[in-house]
Computed example of a mutant assay.
Amino acid sequence: MPAEIGVRPFRQRFPWIGGDLQTIRDFIVRPVEPVPAAASQTLSFEMPDGTGDTLIGIHDRPAEPVAGRPLAILIHGLTGCAESLYVRRAARTFLEAGFSTLRLNLRGAGASRPLCRQQYHSGRSEDLAAVIDRVLGLDGADAVTTDDVAPDGVALVGWSLGANMLLKGAAEFGAQKGVRGAVAISAPIDLMGTARNFTILRNTAYHRHLLAAMRAEVAGVPGGLTALERDRLAAARSVIAFDDAFTAPRNGFADAADYYARNSASGFLARIAIPTRVIHALDDPWIPKAGYLTVDWEACPSVQATLTRHGGHVGFHAPGGVWSDAEAVRFLAGL
């Protein structure tokens, strides 16, 4: 198992003991998490691919900024958005540490939904590239410039699907665009293994919940679904069937297997050339640990992998707060 000097061991917070309770804690306890920003503004990012799709992000500024810290772009997971509890909570931690944050709604998610005919997926890293180009002033546009949003560059933080997308993007363009660092939390780096894992008996409740949320999300696609898509989605009884019916054909993949094979972050890790932290719990009920234990981490010199025994999926609830958020801040503050 990879080891890293100086990482504080994760300790579970009672009563959230075990992978399942760590995972569902935020579904049981949903505290109001106001984002303590000194100022916030809504930013629009029109995608340069000719679709007319526009992503919406919330730029939050800290009350006490710390010089030299990059803009932290926060990337939600599947069926999430910029207002998801874990994103808002992480924004609070970053703001309190003097970082500015950009809580991004991916294509077709949250506030981006009515402005997008297309939909995000695990490998749509080109959307991240377009947002980075805009905030760093690399695309020639005037609406958002490096002086008013990201004077000290950018860093990426993602959860679950957003973490897989982040790792793929870090390999493809991170160094070329000068991304200063990245943190991926609970990334499904083996997409087929994760999709199959949902179909086992113990994960039936998770699977039903996620599939229902996925159906509800795409039901609002501007322009609507085709009759064939509606029929196939109604018949889909698994995440794999959903991706066969919707995600793959909508994005030019032959089928779900092709989509998973071409976008799983495990195939990109060795190409990452920016400082990157991977945080994952081996008791994550959604993502099988084999995908992480079979990676040759020594062949990924820019990646620090921290695999904890406990933490669940996007959990890491520890005494005093969310451990993965604190570790993400610590890692990026030390760049």
Rank of each mutant, 00 (worst) to 15 (best):
P31N: 07
A38T: 01
P48Q: 00
D49I: 01
T54K: 14
R69P: 03
R69N: 11
L71P: 01
G77D: 00
G80W: 02
G80V: 02
C81T: 13
E83L: 11
T93R: 15
T93S: 12
E96P: 04
G98Y: 00
R107M: 06
G108R: 09
G110M: 05
R113K: 14
H121V: 03
E126V: 08
D127C: 07
A129S: 13
D133L: 04
G137N: 09
D139V: 11
D139R: 04
D142V: 13
D147W: 07
D152M: 06
D152Q: 13
V154D: 03
A155W: 02
A171E: 05
S186T: 03
S186A: 15
L201E: 12
L210Q: 11
R230T: 14
R230M: 11
R237M: 09
S238A: 04
V239W: 10
F242H: 03
D243G: 02
D258V: 04
Y260C: 00
A261C: 05
S264E: 10
L269Q: 12
L282H: 01
W286Q: 14
T294P: 03
W297V: 12
C300Y: 01
L307Y: 00
F316Q: 12
F316Y: 15
H317R: 10
P319C: 07
V322W: 01
V322N: 11
W323A: 12
A326W: 11
V329G: 00
F331S: 09
L332R: 05
L335A: 05
